[in-house]
Simulated scan of single mutants.
Amino acid sequence: MITLTRLNGHPFAVNPDLIERAESTPDTVVTLVDGTKLLVAEDLASLTRIVQEHRAGVVALAIEMADSEPNAAVASVTGIDSRPRLHVTPEVD
C-alpha cells in the first residue's frame, strides 16, 4: 500500500497495483482499474516516485527474504517446506 493525500489534507492508503493511470488536469487524478477516480494532492512526478519506491521496496524485501531464508523462499514457490520443525509435546500430569 502507498499513502497519498486527499485535497483536504487527509491521508489514505491505496494499493498501487490497482492504479490504471494518473493525470494532471491540473489536479492529479488517479484512476483505478475499476474506474474509481481519486483526486490527490501529490503532483504526477511525486506520485510516480512513490509508486516506484514502493515497487523497489517490494523487490528488495523479496531478495532479502530469499537470501536470509532460502528454504522459506523455496517453500513459498513449491509448497514444500523443508525447514526443521520444533515439536512441543504437552506435559501430562
Results as ranks from 00 to 15, higher is better:
Met1Pro: 01
Leu4Ala: 03
Leu4Val: 11
Thr5Pro: 05
Leu7Met: 11
Leu7Thr: 03
Gly9Phe: 05
Ala13Lys: 07
Val14Ser: 09
Asn15Arg: 13
Asn15Met: 14
Pro16Asp: 03
Ile19Ser: 02
Pro26Tyr: 09
Pro26Gln: 08
Pro26Phe: 14
Pro26Ala: 12
Asp27Glu: 15
Asp27Val: 09
Val29Tyr: 00
Leu32Ser: 05
Leu32Thr: 05
Val33Gln: 11
Gly35Ser: 11
Leu38Trp: 07
Leu39Pro: 00
Val40Leu: 02
Ala41Thr: 08
Glu42Met: 10
Glu42His: 06
Leu44Gln: 02
Leu44Pro: 00
Leu47Met: 04
Arg49Asp: 08
Ile50Trp: 04
Ile50Lys: 04
Val51Glu: 06
Glu53Cys: 07
Glu53Pro: 01
Arg55Thr: 08
Ala56Gly: 11
Ala56Thr: 15
Ala60Met: 12
Leu61Cys: 01
Ile63Ala: 10
Asp67Gly: 04
Ser68Gly: 15
Val74Trp: 01
Ala75Gln: 03
Val77Cys: 10
Thr78Asp: 09
Thr78Phe: 08
Gly79Gln: 08
Gly79His: 10
Gly79Leu: 03
Asp81Cys: 09
Ser82Asn: 15
Arg83Asp: 12
Arg83Thr: 14
Arg83Cys: 07
Arg85Glu: 04
His87Gln: 11
Val88Trp: 12
Thr89Leu: 03
Thr89Val: 15
Glu91His: 11
Val92Trp: 01
